[in-house]
Design a protein around this nucleic acid. Sequence first.
DNA 1: ATGCTAGGTGTACGGCGTACACCTGTCAAG
DNA 2: CTTGACAGGTGTACGCCGTACACCTAGCAT
Lengths: 228, 228
Amino acid sequence: MGMATQIEQDERTRAPLSREGILRTAVALADQGGVQAASMRKIAQELGVVPMALYKHVSGKDELLDGMIDVVVAEIDPPATGVDWKAAVRQRILSARQALLRHPWASRVMESRTEPTPTVLAYMDSMIGMFRAGGLSMDLTHHAMHAMGSRLMGFTQELFNDTSDVDPQVEAQMWGEMADVYPSIYELFVTVTHDDASVVGPGCDDQFEFEFALDLLLDGLEELKGQS
Amino acid sequence: MGMATQIEQDERTRAPLSREGILRTAVALADQGGVQAASMRKIAQELGVVPMALYKHVSGKDELLDGMIDVVVAEIDPPATGVDWKAAVRQRILSARQALLRHPWASRVMESRTEPTPTVLAYMDSMIGMFRAGGLSMDLTHHAMHAMGSRLMGFTQELFNDTSDVDPQVEAQMWGEMADVYPSIYELFVTVTHDDASVVGPGCDDQFEFEFALDLLLDGLEELKGQS
DNA sequence: ATGCTAGGTGTACGGCGTACACCTGTCAAG
DNA sequence: CTTGACAGGTGTACGCCGTACACCTAGCAT
């Protein structure tokens, strides 16, 4: 069996390349190895193909990243119907948050993009429509979009990455030192961990914090809506 | 005059390398050419030195980026004294915003970092202290920190980069097409540009939008403070 | 039969971060 | 005064990255 035959078999085995397949592979690689695992070369290798082959389906790295974002945005649920505007916006943003939690690299990539893709524009458009349907004035809707900011895309920066792989001994001493240098952080930490009944939990409930901030904004907007 | 002499002159001319000098140069390069202009190699060239020389003062690219962030954070004004807690927080966050507007690359870099530097921790600590001094409970302060999210660092994502270098003819046609595909965005655009009396202004006032969202959050927090 | 084209290949280039061996001037200890 | 450690700048080299460009080839419309 000659080399050529082997190659032919490989080629026959391999599903033909396609933009969608490339994007799916890229997203999968990024999901499991971070955004830097989604390099042109690694995607190509994963697909059993030479790097330059990708360029027949994607114009370059930028378009690839845009495509990856579109995949994530497509996972966001459509607007709920038959509910309060606030509830609808709330649900949708929480859905966006879930999508971005499934693809932790996506928020960073989104921010690095300069021009929004049609998919992102469609999402924005739909979001604006939800505010309008809820009776917010155009001006207030405009402010609302800005106020939501990155929350619109379902993410807020987590200030502290609580997952630490240091051993408790060292960590305890670290906190001891922090008490002197960063007294307020220490105080906050102590309160939060004390209130938290769960033994080993992550100190604070990200989901709760996200919803807290979201509701703070939505409630404020509703009050302003009533005033106008 | 031999080569050696020339080199000696260069060496004598050049200020000796230092961590601070490297960071200043890196920030300057990033300010004028984006974050990718602050590569090890370009920083070294700017300082008239070979790339590896930097490693005697900075352990690697990560520490360099951390250092660059510290430079920016150090530009944030200290807390104002003798004013309402809300006013003090407001002023400080607006100061942070100014710092990040001077260094547009900084927000993106901050988000890419995993561990906060001592400088950033000190800023956080001070911020927490401001909430506490304002009478917010520890719990509410905790929520406040999360609610502020990236705004704490003085930035919100600008959804649309309004600075376009296309000619008005093309842009007008583009908006015409958008009216069909993204009706809500179009409607919003029309309203905003119509209300804006200024002829060529950027469509919406980023500073106003930032303060709008900030005040929405601060007002909400104050109300919650009163309730508890 | 012919020649066009879509799609995969191979080679090569410039840029990046950085490991590692090397040199050299300075300065304290013997 | 010698010596030797060492701080700090140099040079080379490696493996990664994105991608320009020339090439091949199978399939298909003419």
